[in-house]
Amino acid sequence: MDSDEDERVPLSERPEWADVKPIPQDDGPNPVVPIAYKDEFRETMDYFRAVYASDERSPRSLGLTAEAIKLNPGNYTVWHFRRLVLEELGTDLHDELDFVNSIAKSNSKNYQIWHHRRWVAERIGIEAASLELEFTKEIFSLDAKNYHAWSHRQWVLQALGGWENELDYCDELLEEDIFNNSAWNQRYFVVTRSPLLGGLEAVREAEVKYAVKAILSNPGNESPWRYLRGLYKGDTHALAHDPEVSSVCLEVLKEKKNFVFALSLLLDLLCYGLQPNEEFSNAVEALRPSNSGPPEVNLKETICSVLETLDPIRSNYWIWRKNNLRPSSEV
C-alpha cells in the first residue's frame, strides 16, 4: 500500500499544529442527515474550522485547505477561505493552477473548481489564456460536452483573448462528432462574438453552407438545424426568404426519412411568409400516411397533421401548433 492515506500523520500529532485547538462541528444533539465521517475527514475539518474562525491566513492554513479540498472538493467555504489566504500570502498563482489541475481531473463537474480557476486565471492575466485553453482541451478529450469547462473556455476567450484558432477548434470537434451540440454552441459563440470575424452578418453565408452540409449528411441531427435557424436570429424575414434554407428542407423531405426537423422548419418558414411552390406541397403530400383523412386546407395544416402522426412523442405539440396557426395568414 502506498496511498497518501497511509502516510498521513494526524494533525493532532504534527508539532506545527500543537498550538491550535480544533473546533468540532456543531451538529446539535440529534442532527438529521448526519454523515459518518472518517476520522481523517473529521479531524481535518475540525482544524479547518479553527483557522477559519480565527481567520488565520498563513502558509499552514493554505496547506490545510488543500487537504480539506482533497477530501471534499465541493466545500465552497474552504475554497473561499483559500482565496483569502492566497491573496494575503501573495502566492505564485501558477502553482495554484497546478493544484487545481490535480483536483479537477477527477472532479470536472464541480462548480467550485471552475469558479476558483476563473479567479486564478483572472489574476494571472493574459498569459493564462493559452494555458486555460489547453487545460479545457484536455478536459474535452475526456468529456467533449463538459458544461463547466465550456463556460470557462468562453470566459477565457472574452476576458483574456485567444480567439485566433477557435473556429478551427470547433471544426476539429465537429469533425470528430458532428452531434456534439456543445461544439455547435461554441461555434455560434465564436461567429457571433469573436472580434476577428466581423459579426453574424459577415459570416452568415459561409455558416449557412456549413450547416447545410452537416444537415444533409445527417438530417436527423438536431444541432445543425438549430444552428441554421440561429444564424437568422431576430430576422425571420431573411430566414423565410433565403433559398438555401428552404431548399435544404425540400431536399431532406424528398428523401422521405429523418424529416421531422425539415418539416418543423418548413412550417416556420411558411408562418414567416414563404410562398410555397408546388414542389413543396408535393413533397409534404408524399409524406402523408396513406390512412390519413382528407387533405387539409393549406400546407401548414398538412405539415402539422403529418408531424402529429409521424412524430408521436410530440403529437400534442403539433396539434397545438395546428390549432394556433394565425388565421389571417392562411394561404
Binding site: I35, N72, G74
Partner: peptide, 20 residues
C-alpha cells in the same frame, strides 16, 4: 437517509440542507 448517511456522503458535506 435522514437518520444516517455513510462516509461516502462526505462529498456532500457542504450540501446538507439539499439532502434535507
Amino acid at each position: 437517509g435522514l437518520k444516517q448517511l455513510g462516509p461516502n456522503y462526505a462529498v456532500l458535506d457542504a450540501n446538507r440542507p439539499w439532502l434535507c
